[in-house]
Write a protein that binds this DNA or RNA. Structure first.
Lengths: 231, 231
DNA sequence: GGATGTGAAGTAGTTCACAGCC
DNA sequence: GGCTGTGAACTACTTCACATCC
């Protein structure tokens, strides 16, 4: 059993959730013409400690320079490699109500290798309409094989859509409907529920003692360094 | 210092993120006319172990019945109390492009005490238009005081909007733009980034070894019970 | 000098195992 | 009998502190 060189260092779940954030920060620096960044700066912007940043990045191999931080473009590249951005993959979106349209038209959703393959709906009023360069097809005509399926249908149709996606051999599903769906083992389902974020925010507000830091990133359970004040 | 009776039991962050999920499940049971549920069933549907469910719920006080599980309506009620759903609060949404419209028109976003107070934009083409029962106002005219501000503006305008919200004394911000914003201490910012979910999904797919369970909930870092097969 | 990378310590969260109660 | 609730064990993640290297 040879130790894999770069790939599959088995990153932890929290680390994986933070890497895209670091990458966004790196892109911001690059856009402003800066070529170097240190763990302190990344942590400040991402709302985590510098140590956490260093540990996360150390997991991708040692590419920082002691005394000088990280090269912004190398950082960007390494995170991309770790997250598999070199490969591109097909995404199908099912359900083109307000949310579905917002997603496929967004410049921040289908990025980093994601390629929109097809759109589906069941509503005759929507089928045939062209959205984001794709003509919306009928779910009943069968879904084209893809890597990821996105469910933007109402809760009542979520399980139906999930079943159609499974039939189409889609093994990764992103479900935006507030409905738990059951799928066979071997298929991953991630849920995105906007109202949960609102509810978490309200809990902290009601109980005072929430992580109310400055410029802090809390998405995906990322907590702020407690009692540490920025700058 | 008297120990508070029900409130402020200081729930852990992962627990808080799971409670809304349990509540959704309880509602599903109630809708199907079922009056009892046990930790095993909840765990199955939420994608966590039964023990985790019991520990989470024990934090809200002991309201389960040994040998018979939880009463669905009591469960629903207790979670609501813990999350502060009895209080209602005002939400303002800034930016009514595709996503902003999708959110305010969604039946799953502004729920459980959230009340839409006002809509804002900077685009003259959108200002004055009525959406979801509210006429869109101009951000420059000042934002009305509210509990939560939702940023649906493009990344380039995110910081500007955040500043206006802070001026309006909004202390909780939900930011849907892929832009880290800085706010004074005492203001909470939660980020929602759809593409991060996609990227996490892709990481697991590329590395095989992901949490690919059946009917599992992964949103917000909720991981599946490893190596445990459902049913 | 200055920031990375990492063993060691600390903390938080999960899972086990079972006593307690219906 | 069956399922909750919880001390105890375990695992995972974070933070400290510092050796290491540019």
């Amino acid at each position: 059993m040879v130790t894999p060189r770069l790939r599959s260092k088995k990153l932890s779940e929290p680390t994986i959730a933070r890497l895209p954030v670091y990458q966004r920060i790196a892109e911001g620096f690059a856009r402003r013409g800066l070529s170097r960044i240190d763990s302190e700066q990344i942590g400040q912007l991402a709302g985590v400690t510098a140590t956490t940043v260093r540990r996360d990045l150390a997991g991708l191999g040692s590419f920082g320079t002691r005394g000088a931080g990280y090269d912004v473009s190398v950082l960007n590249e390494r995170i991309g490699e770790a997250l598999g951005h070199d490969r591109s993959y097909d995404v199908v979106v099912v359900g083109l109500g307000n949310l579905g349209r917002a997603l496929v038209n967004s410049s921040n959703f289908l990025i980093r290798g994601a390629r929109l393959a097809a759109l589906y709906d069941v509503d005759p009023a929507v089928i045939g309409v062209e959205i984001a360069g794709h003509v919306v097809r009928n779910v009943d005509d069968g879904i084209v094989p893809a890597t990821v399926g996105v469910i933007c249908a109402p809760a009542s149709a979520a399980q139906f859509v999930a079943d159609r996606l499974v039939e189409a051999d889609v093994h990764a599903i992103l479900n935006f409907s507030p409905q738990v769906v059951t799928v066979p083992i071997g298929t991953a389902v991630h849920y995105v529920d906007f109202s949960i974020e609102l509810q978490i925010l309200m809990y902290h507000l009601n109980n005072g003692t929430g992580p109310l830091g400055g410029g802090v990133l809390h998405s995906l359970g990322i907590a702020s360094p407690s009692g540490r004040r920025p700058s």
